[in-house]
Nucleic acid binder design. Structure first.
Lengths: 340, 340
DNA sequence: TTGTATGCGTTATCAG
DNA sequence: CTGATAACGCATACAA
């Protein structure tokens, strides 16, 4: 900050003490007399002293701050995750530094370099859909940076991963559609290189196979940026609807894809479920207000954020980030609503 | 970060140079020979040198980071604002530190104290609905901390304020309801101590007065936490609907209040606009997908975030934060949709 | 063109 | 119990 802040030195001068005495008094050291402590503490409060965290960080080699990289803040799933992270971090005296990759591997890398130039104690990341080369991230981890993955993880890096049960979510959603009598269930998947996409596809396939419905490859489409670009969804839908035998139900593989589908269907005047059934991942609470309300798979985003932050803080404090590695899975709920 | 990072000192030793030479070479100083520069730069790249931002901050007395305090991250309006802020900050090499007040004055103060302990170069804040005492904020500003208000400002503090045209937005929305023939238009306002609430109420009153419709105080209700607590909205709605002469239209004064109203009406099976018309502030794109689509007043949240960040950065760089003070108003759009 | 010394604010070590 | 001093990593005024 530009403005003149009160430092330990000022207090020391004004009180005729040494900086070390003041420092110790402020930290409530046992080797300082009660009288001096009282004097220093009262004066410090009076002049509004706040220890300079930057100087503390430099000395202690930690910053009491954690970095968070998500694909997009203005995405209800991620904003809820961040909310959870912030709530835990706040209660432990940590600052949260936010960056967004906008699904770009370049931006992700640049954010990574920036955040890790000795200014964060740990990192929570949901990798971008575009990321193929994670050697930099891996190197950071090997060099000792505590990392926790949330939602989108990299299997190669052995650390905590906080992921919803994507397989089960997708399985249940698909099964639900099957039970409703739908036979030609198409899926608009997120980028195929993401682990969550694979898990969701697996769940989708499993449900179909269980019902002895053949998995048709032409009913599987991909939105490489997770629907962040509406045209992706539009193209996928158009392709699907152009086929000789059209799908009778759609399974949307991400939050943005779900809203994209809704938008598309609205535009084309395709009613759900009458003309085409729709189900998808979604974390916005407005889906229940639609008419008819939309059944969705909701991820426990807030809780996932909280879990990631707790795990990260424990990694930071224990410093044993390679020894006890575990994956936490939190379950996803399928919210069945009238429409689908 | 815990792991051993490469410092200037290491490079200097390995190259048999002094730290100052290395430092200057890295900063491309003109007083360093091309040969040395090349040597240093190449070696630095090879060993993956990243300047320690904490040390730089301590030295330069600035941190290249800005603090952001909003009431709640997982609120579409604010997450869009943050998105805008981050996009500008990123392109200027600044880090964004996020904190949320959850509409609590206490949390706001504690966040403020934390962020300003010499670790941010400037602050963008949307004050909490609960905040009455802003003396701490004012003191910070007087002591030289660059501040920009976004959406919710404090008039007393003379600095940039990025605010949508709330008066016009509310005026247009109310006028629209009047033109549709509604006569008993109720308003669910945000906390009355917020400037935006007053502006919106003024717009509401102006439209009514222009149409010679008397302003009835019993049609004006307040949700003190801006609808963050659903019970607030529920109570307000129940109160309104219990009156002898019920309102025929509702004007919701914030994002959360709007969704709260939608939820309430859904629960009680009150159709809009058939039973009760609804219009409100909202920044979620799902409102257009409702059936019928909901007319809303949308704030240019992303742009407001961008504007705040630009203004803040100019304040930080010019350092003349008290000399040229101005308020930027960005207009709000009223999205007229089928339903209302 | 390069090196030496100093300080940013804090804490820790070592004396006193 | 308290004080002087060094150190964290970097940048710069001052010497050379």
């Amino acid at each position: 900050m530009k403005f003149e802040a009160v430092t330990i030195k000022h207090i020391a001068q004004e009180l005729g003490l040494s900086t070390s005495t003041v420092s110790r008094a402020l930290r409530d050291s046992h080797e300082i007399s009660a009288a001096t402590k009282k004097l220093v503490l009262e004066h410090a409060k009076k002049v509004g002293f706040k220890p300079n965290r930057i100087a503390q960080s430099l000395k202690e080699r930690k910053s009491l701050s954690i970095g968070v990289i998500v694909s997009e803040i203005a995405n209800s799933f991620f904003s809820q995750v961040i909310n959870g992270i912030e709530s835990i971090a706040y209660s432990h005296g940590y600052t949260v530094i936010i960056a967004q990759s906008m699904e770009s591997a370049d931006r992700e890398l640049s954010n990574l370099e920036y955040l890790t130039s000795s200014s964060i104690d740990g990192l929570i990341i949901s990798v971008s859909a575009e990321t193929k080369n994670y050697s930099y991230l891996k190197k950071l981890h090997e060099r000792g940076l505590p990392i926790v993955f949330v939602d989108r993880a990299i299997d190669d890096i052995e650390t905590h991963k906080v992921i919803a049960d994507n397989f089960k979510g997708a399985y249940k959603a698909t099964k639900h559609l099957i039970q409703k009598g739908y036979k030609r269930i198409a899926i608009l998947s997120n980028n195929s290189s993401l682990s969550i996409s694979q898990e969701r596809l697996d769940g989708y396939r499993a449900a179909l196979q269980e019902a002895k419905i053949p998995v048709k490859e032409n009913l599987i489409t991909y939105c490489d940026h997770g629907g962040m670009i509406y045209a992706e969804v539009e193209n996928a839908m158009k392709t699907l609807l152009k086929q000789r035998i059209k799908p009778d139900a759609i399974f949307a593989g991400s939050d943005k894809i779900t809203t994209g589908c809704l938008k598309f269907m609205k535009q084309k005047n395709i009613r759900t479920p009458a003309d085409l059934a729709l189900i998808g991942f979604s974390n916005t609470d407005l889906t229940e207000l639609l008419n008819p309300p939309l059944s969705v798979i909701r991820q426990p985003a807030f809780e996932m954020g909280q879990a990631s932050a707790s795990l990260l803080l424990s990694l930071i404090e224990s410093k044993k980030l390679h020894t006890k590695f575990e994956t936490r899975i939190q379950s996803t709920e399928l919210l069945i609503r009238k429409s689908t």
